[in-house]
Design a protein around this nucleic acid. Structure first.
Lengths: 192, 192
DNA sequence: GGCTCGATCCTAGCGCCGCTAGACAAGTGG
DNA sequence: CCACTTGTCTAGCGGCGCTAGGATCGAGCC
């Protein structure tokens, strides 16, 4: 069986290569430049090979999004763990979120802007996505206050962060004021 | 000169037809279905005619976005004018914004999700876009509080609303709770 | 060791996209 | 009546996502 196992390993390896290359290409030249032809050329296989791993381009985007979700969850947890006190924790969470989006624009796009064909709010939502939201929920802790359901609070807080990311990226919000916006958001929304 | 004037009128009329048809097609089948070929067929002209009015597809999307911005500005002003008291005004503004996005998904997408080639935060930002933000700013009035610049406050409030729209559309936030989220946003963010 | 056969991968191509060059008809001014 | 501008169309370019069908190659059996 060793031969089959080796083949499976190689296959999995190649799948990782595809996702990593797609991400790399997107980081260098944007998602528009990520075409199946270019991607195939970079991994030094022909186009149809991509389709033996993924149903189509959407699924490749989705794979990048899942990778990103896992990384974001880790980043959020690391940031909140290092913070001291409730307010600092919420602020660190917010900064960490914005920071992640700024450092990985194509990954963030894959997660929220592009169609990666991922189910979001259903039972078959992929685990990494659920976990990223869980990390958000943990970090916010009891900043929701007694009169508001924590999940609802997390949703609104998340929406605000996501809006900041989107509008900043669109060139609508000058980056210099980012810090002040985070302060405003944390000071007013969170009860800490 | 009458002949030339008539021609100009007809030309302007056809341009409106193009934009309206693009919007209609997007509303019926989504922006993916808005191709230059289909659009040309619907207006009963050939493809190149589109390019005598717009530089390309992006500009057509941009035109729909501008139309949408003007409508949104009007909707926001109407909603805030009808509201009584500062808190009601802010709440009406928020509901009106979300309502607009829900009623006109493709238009909202043209404004904020797609690339319409519009300059956003510079001196040559088209007037309708500036005006829409102005309407937002007016509606929020002095809900910013004394310690926060009104424009900065408007940006954050807007970002939160935009995030709610995006995440709701992505299926991430259940629509039933929309009202409660608006309440949370208004109660905490606005000082009224 | 030679052969069969299934897995694996590639070449070629389909239908569609955004966009444009160049032919052609219609209307205007001399 | 003719030259010419203006407006529109036909046809086609390069590139897209995706797939059918043929070639190749290595594993497993006699």
């Amino acid at each position: 069986m060793s031969v089959q196992e080796r083949k499976q390993r190689e296959r999995a390896e190649r799948e990782r290569l595809i996702v990593a290359t797609a991400r790399e290409l997107a980081a260098e030249q944007g998602w528009d430049a990520v075409t199946t032809r270019r991607l195939a050329e970079r991994i030094e296989y022909s186009q149809p090979v991509l389709y033996s791993h993924f149903r189509g381009k959407r699924e490749i985007i989705g794979a990048v999004a899942l990778e990103g979700a896992a990384e974001m969850a880790a980043a959020l947890r690391a940031a909140t763990a290092a913070a001291d006190g409730p307010r600092a924790r919420v602020a660190a969470l917010a900064r960490s979120y914005l920071d992640f989006a700024e450092r990985n624009p194509p990954v963030y796009d894959a997660m929220f802007q592009l169609d990666g064909g991922l189910a979001f709010a259903s039972e078959d939502t992929p685990a990494p996505l659920k976990d990223a939201f869980a990390a958000l929920l943990e970090g916010l802790g009891d900043a929701a206050g007694d009169d508001v359901h924590p999940a609802l609070f997390a949703e609104v807080f998340w929406a605000a962060l996501h809006g900041l990311v989107t509008l900043t990226r669109a060139g609508r919000l000058p980056p210099e004021e980012a810090e002040r916006r985070v302060d405003l958001l944390v000071d007013r929304l969170a009860l800490v």
